[in-house]
């Protein structure tokens, strides 16, 4: 608790000051927030982060659900496939990013070698503006194993009688997914989407390693937390960085509240 609530208060205070760590904070009121509004790098990082979130969160959720439903049946290969999907989640983010920077290497990377084999010329993923976010999405999709495991467990808890009844009513597999499975597991989906959103908006280690090389920063790969980190620990503008942090916090809270609110109509809670 001490390590959360006290820092939060301090952070709010810092965000209203000019603070370099070397001297004591100087009160500037809303000055940092006003400066942020005129900071093009700030808006760039906001844009990139939102773009990434809008693509990645739906893609990850849809893919996890499809894989979970496919693997929740009694496939002989199910356990093996599940293990293969889960193992990448254990790989440290730094290692993931290093390995993918190799896979996405424009000249020698496996991804482009594969594309070349089917007659396509792959882009230079990590240095191009257009392909930076897609590359990060692919990398992040590689680590969705935890969600798949959670959704498999949730799907298993759906009573078999419901499926039986729906089948007797002549519902197709797809129909049963949308009208039986999905409503029954919707509380789990909501919870996981919220957690995923909070984490996605903080993405740091992977883009830091992928898009920041000694040749410089790929602007399409500048994400919110990276810009915040730069301000705090590279430029020593602790107050400015704290203002960014509080904007992030408020956005996360609003988004979470909005998702709870919007989901009341869709999420189905079983009577306990």
């Amino acid at each position: 608790m001490v390590f959360v609530l006290l820092p939060m208060g301090l952070s709010l205070y810092f965000s209203l000051t000019d603070y370099s760590l070397l001297e004591s904070p100087v009160w500037v009121g809303a000055g940092n927030y006003r400066r942020l509004m005129d900071d093009p790098r700030f808006w760039l990082s906001v844009r990139n982060t939102l773009l990434f979130a809008f693509v990645f969160i739906p893609a990850a959720t849809a893919l996890s659900l499809v894989l979970a439903v496919a693997l929740s049946g009694r496939l002989r290969v199910g356990k093996l496939v599940q293990a293969c999907i889960f193992i990448p989640t254990l790989v440290p983010m730094v290692a993931t990013a290093v390995v993918f920077s190799w896979l996405f290497n424009g000249e020698y990377g496996l991804v482009n070698a594969g594309l070349r084999a089917i007659g396509l010329e792959g882009p230079s993923w990590l240095t191009s503006r257009a392909w930076a976010v897609p590359a990060l999405v692919l990398l992040s999709l590689w680590s969705i194993g935890q969600q798949v495991v959670v959704y498999i467990a949730a799907v298993h808890e759906v009573p078999a009688e419901l499926h039986e009844a729906a089948r007797l009513d002549g519902m197709s597999v797809v129909g049963r997914f949308f009208r039986v499975t999905l409503p029954m597991i919707s509380p789990v989906v909501l919870f996981n989407v919220i957690v995923l959103t909070i984490n996605t908006l903080q993405v740091f280690a992977q883009p830091y390693i992928l898009f920041r090389t000694k040749d410089g920063q790929n602007d399409a790969g500048l994400f919110y937390t990276m810009h915040l980190y730069d301000n705090a620990f590279v430029y020593q503008q602790m107050g400015y960085a704290s203002a960014m942090a509080w904007i992030q916090l408020v956005v996360v809270l609003i988004l979470t509240a909005a998702m709870w609110w919007a989901s009341r109509r869709f999420v189905h809670y079983r009577a306990a």
Binding site: M1, V4, L10, T225, Y229, A241, S242, A245, Q248, L249
Partner: peptide, 23 residues
């Protein structure tokens, strides 16, 4: 409830003040 709420706090919010405290 407060304990649960802290799960939602993004780490970047804590990063700067923790750094200052540890300094």
């Amino acid at each position: 409830a407060i304990t649960l709420a802290t799960m939602m706090i993004p780490f970047p919010v804590l990063m700067v003040p923790l750094f200052a405290i540890f300094k």
